[in-house]
Design a protein around this nucleic acid. Structure first.
Lengths: 133, 133
DNA sequence: GCTTGACCTTCCCACGATGGGAAGGTCTAT
DNA sequence: ATAGACCTTCCCATCGTGGGAAGGTCAAGC
């Protein structure tokens, strides 16, 4: 299977497949006589694993750890769970932060008439700098 | 005021101040005879504006638009509001997405015993690829 | 004077993940 | 044989920030 076919089958672009190989997330693919990369079903499976994990917001570093655990048939599930829990904690922290941003901006937007005049609570607030270090 | 003092006063690093100037977010600073950048209170004020807007998650592109509106004493507040509302919508979309990630991972983590055995619903789910294109 | 240390300058490189595109080789169907 | 679709490697761009090199400048103390 050429890289294009593997890309199609996995939903990961050929560009990204090469990238994952270059950063060591994937074992270097087999090469054919013409130097083309050659993939099998198992590779496609790993690519789908990566794609799904990326969509859940795991970094490639985290995915590397997850893949290593996945390949190791003797791993304790505790490790996997720990990685996932840490990731959830990070996600929740970022969600909280973004909710605070959205809330602040929402309130400022509500206070802003949105008319033709230059008065604007949003800019006033930014200019006042009410959230210093 | 040297760049270091402006950095201290605004909370923006000297590195970032130069960067903002290089991308056109700030007007090029006045230079003294020794080529050192020279800042005034007004510059510090703009830097604080930028810092606060960055903390609210605006991109430098968006901040450029906000700054232009801020400098323009005749701007309609409608413009500002539009930018802010679009940004809030983006934030909310990303929040929703991240909440879905966290929920999925939380459920998988709950189903995972976290013991010494290799059975792990998290990896099983990733490997199954239950969320294809 | 001269040295030291803190400051400033520009320039390049790095991160994270991805995409664009150039320049060149290979396959396949007509 | 030639076209077109594929493959290869390599470099560059994004976005915001930081690290660090190499070099110029200022202030204080000897």
């Amino acid at each position: 299977m050429n890289i294009g076919a593997a890309a199609l089958a996995s939903g990961v672009t050929a560009k990204s497949i090469r990238h994952y190989e270059s950063i060591g997330l994937l074992r270097p693919a087999e090469r054919r006589a013409n130097a083309y990369r050659d993939y099998c079903e198992r590779d496609v499976h790993e690519l789908r694993f990566i794609k799904r994990a990326r969509r859940l917001g795991f970094s490639t570093g985290e995915i590397g750890a997850l893949l290593a655990l996945w390949r190791d048939r003797a791993r304790p599930s505790r490790e996997v769970r720990r990685i996932a829990e840490r990731h959830v904690a990070e996600l929740e922290a970022r969600i909280t932060e973004m909710q605070a941003m959205a809330k602040t901006l929402g309130a400022l937007g509500d206070a802003c008439c949105g008319d033709d005049r230059p008065d604007c609570p949003i800019l006033d607030d930014l200019a006042r700098g009410s959230g210093e270090d």
